[in-house]
Design a protein around this nucleic acid. Sequence first.
DNA 1: GCTCTTTTCCTGAACCAGTCAAGAAAACGA
DNA 2: TCGTTTTCTTGACTGGTTCAGGAAAAGAGC
Lengths: 144, 144
Amino acid sequence: MTSPADLQQLLRGVALRVTRPRVAVLGAVHAHPHADTESIISAVREELPDASHQAVYDSLRVLTNAGLVRRIQPAGSVARYESRVGDNHHHVVCRSCGAVSDVDCAVGDAPCLTASDDHGFSIDEAEVVYWGLCPACSTAGSRP
Amino acid sequence: MTSPADLQQLLRGVALRVTRPRVAVLGAVHAHPHADTESIISAVREELPDASHQAVYDSLRVLTNAGLVRRIQPAGSVARYESRVGDNHHHVVCRSCGAVSDVDCAVGDAPCLTASDDHGFSIDEAEVVYWGLCPACSTAGSRP
DNA sequence: GCTCTTTTCCTGAACCAGTCAAGAAAACGA
DNA sequence: TCGTTTTCTTGACTGGTTCAGGAAAAGAGC
């Protein structure tokens, strides 16, 4: 896990005010990768029982804008957050239970940024989501 | 555009009952690629003024399940639908206005289904979303 | 330390895409 | 044409997320 001092360091590093809710939210994202907002609210409240859901939503937004956390939202899912940023990794998502795992980019660090025809778009990111079944759902489905 | 007869043919081809709302919804998806549900409801009502939004939602669901349309949902966007199915193409999404364009798979027909480490998942699809700015937003942003 | 200004947090309400439910209507095989 | 099954209509509702305004806290300057 990441220590409170490290978390504060991260916040100061991007010129954000250090507040207890923000430290707690950032810590929760580090401790629970791919957690949804509800889970993060719960985790934050173990430390700060009176934290409002709004503070968590606000913190997640500023942390995302500052690049300290990354927001992912696979189709049909609520928003999820992770602290691995800037390393261009992708995700596998289970169609059945929604579980998410990290997948390093197969093409190296600077990936698949090459669309065959970009229609004049200036592309800055290629996001890849692999869909399938996680080990648990896979075995559960194959023997009914 | 696709003729009503063709649309009915498509429905029968996947053993779905041919109803006026379904034909209208399927036609609207063919006529307006990447349209969201609201737009599809409007398009359907030009033809069937009394169609309920629920009929459109239901139709879109069965059409999607039958494989006649594909549902896409870039992060932060509402659901969008398109009629290009089965050819494994991807999408470019504008961060500013949300516009969507098709992009053929750069790696050929059967793509990027190879994750470096699949964590035991059985993967059946690789979805790629390119993020950037569309031509209009790109020029609008560069000269303020 | 102690103020002052600015940012952030809390309370509580609102929003909106999408879903649920029950009865009426339509599709289609016999 | 009839009867069964599916689909559509109406209307209420849900749940994640955002909006708004006042209270509290963070950090800069003294």
